[in-house]
Design a protein around this nucleic acid. Structure first.
Lengths: 144, 144
DNA sequence: TCTTGACCTTACAGTTACCGAAAGGTTTAT
DNA sequence: ATAAACCTTTCGGTAACTGTAAGGTCAAGA
């Protein structure tokens, strides 16, 4: 099967499928005669697996682990579960961070008239001296 | 003022301050005699402004707009407020996405024994055929 | 047979917001 | 004089791709 169809069947972009080969996740055979990639049913199954795992937010590094577990008939389901529980933890952290940011921003917006005047409490907040401790200083920025 | 002190006073890393010059956000004078950057009080004020704006999650592109508004005595506070409200919108979208992912992952984890057996409903979920519509297919991945 | 269009190929640059390391110049203090 | 603590530029790396360029291949229709 050509890359285009493999991509379509797995729900990935063609470029993404090539990228996954480049980083050693799913490596297809090649047709003899031309340079085209030839994806087997198993290859496509693995691509689909990766699409699902990415869709729930796992990094490619973790996806690599998950795929290895998927292929390992000797796996312990405990190993899989740990990865999922870790991810849930991460998401909870992000949820807290984002909630805090949202509160901060809502507080700012509520104080700003939002009219034609230049007066703006939001700008003042951003310019305020260090010594006044502001809520958002206690929160990590959303490095994602 | 040298870059190190400017960084310390604004709460940014030295590398970050150089980067902000590179992308045209805060451009210091130079000392005559050596190549050292010479940050004015206004420069440092702008750096601090950027640190605050980044800390609440604005992208550098938006920070650039915010800084321009900050420097513009003719600004309308409405323009500032729009940027803040937009950001709140984005955060809400992210919160919804992450909540949905969390639910999905919790659902998976609850079905997995997490023991020494290879049986794992999580793996089955990732491998399932397209036709079975799964909740996480309706949710955008967390591209952040 | 020729050609057109839809495929496929590689390779390189760009994205975001920086950080780390290398290799070297300057200043300050001892 | 020399060592520590600054400063400089430049390059490469990060995550997970996307876009573009320049070109090879294949199937179908005129």
């Amino acid at each position: 099967m050509n890359i285009g169809q493999a991509a379509a069947e797995s729900g990935l972009a063609t470029k993404t499928v090539r990228y996954y080969e480049e980083i050693g996740l799913v490596i297809p055979a090649r047709y003899t005669g031309n340079d085209y990639r030839n994806y087997s049913a198993t290859n496509v199954e693995h691509l689909r697996f990766l699409q699902r795992a990415r869709a729930v937010g796992f990094s490619l590094d973790v996806c690599r682990e998950l795929l290895a577990l998927y292929c390992d008939s000797e796996r312990r389901s405990a190993e899989v579960k740990v990865l999922v529980l870790d991810k849930i933890q991460q998401i909870e952290t992000q949820l807290h961070t984002l909630s805090a940011l949202k509160s901060t921003l809502l507080g700012m917006a509520s104080k700003c008239a939002g009219d034609d005047s230049a007066d703006c409490p939001i700008m003042e907040t951003f310019a305020a001296p260090m010594k006044s401790i502001m809520p958002f200083m206690l929160v990590e920025p959303n490095h994602e």
